[in-house]
Simulated assay, not measured.
Amino acid sequence: MSALLNFFRSEHSQVAFTDVRIESRAEDILRVLGQRDLDVTAETRERIEPCRDLDVLGVWLDRAVTASRTEELFVDG
């Protein structure tokens, strides 16, 4: 049991969990945009999918809920 706990506390597993959270957040943004019938262009995907900053992805997810156009996700301010 302690070996399993040590694995989950390891730097390797923390990086893996962060990667999963990042990929999931990006997928969530694209899903919300799609469900709202907003235009998800290749450029939009190319900007969202490689982003590795959870804070930025969180802002984009919040904006995806209310945006009237996908470009509004990326507006500063």
Rank of each mutant, 00 (worst) to 15 (best):
T18R: 11
V32I: 04
L33T: 07
L61R: 07
S2E: 14
F74P: 14
V32D: 01
P50H: 09
F7V: 01
E49I: 01
D62W: 03
F8P: 00
A3M: 06
A3Y: 00
T44R: 12
R25V: 06
A64R: 05
R9I: 04
E43D: 12
D76W: 03
D19G: 14
D28K: 13
V32K: 14
D76M: 07
H12L: 13
V75Y: 02
S68G: 10
T18E: 02
H12S: 13
E71P: 06
C51A: 04
L38H: 01
D19M: 15
L61W: 14
I48K: 00
A26Q: 11
R25P: 10
L61E: 13
P50T: 02
D39S: 11
V20D: 13
C51P: 03
I29V: 08
S13W: 01
E71K: 12
F74E: 07
I22W: 04
I22C: 13
G58S: 15
L57A: 01
L5G: 11
S2Q: 14
D62A: 15
R63M: 10
T18W: 00
A16T: 09
Q35N: 13
H12K: 10
T66K: 09
E27C: 02
D39H: 08
R69C: 11
N6R: 09
L5A: 10
V40L: 02
E71T: 03
G58K: 10
L38N: 01
I22S: 07
A16S: 05
V20A: 15
P50N: 05
L57N: 06
R9K: 14
R69L: 00
V20T: 07
R63V: 11
L57V: 08
V59D: 10
V32Y: 02
A42H: 07
V75E: 12
F8W: 04
V56E: 14
L4M: 07
S24K: 05
R31A: 09
D62M: 06
E71N: 12
R25G: 03
D37G: 02
D28H: 09
R47T: 12
T44V: 11
D37H: 09
T41W: 13
D37F: 10
P50Y: 05
S68D: 14
V40A: 14
L57H: 03
D53W: 08
R63W: 01
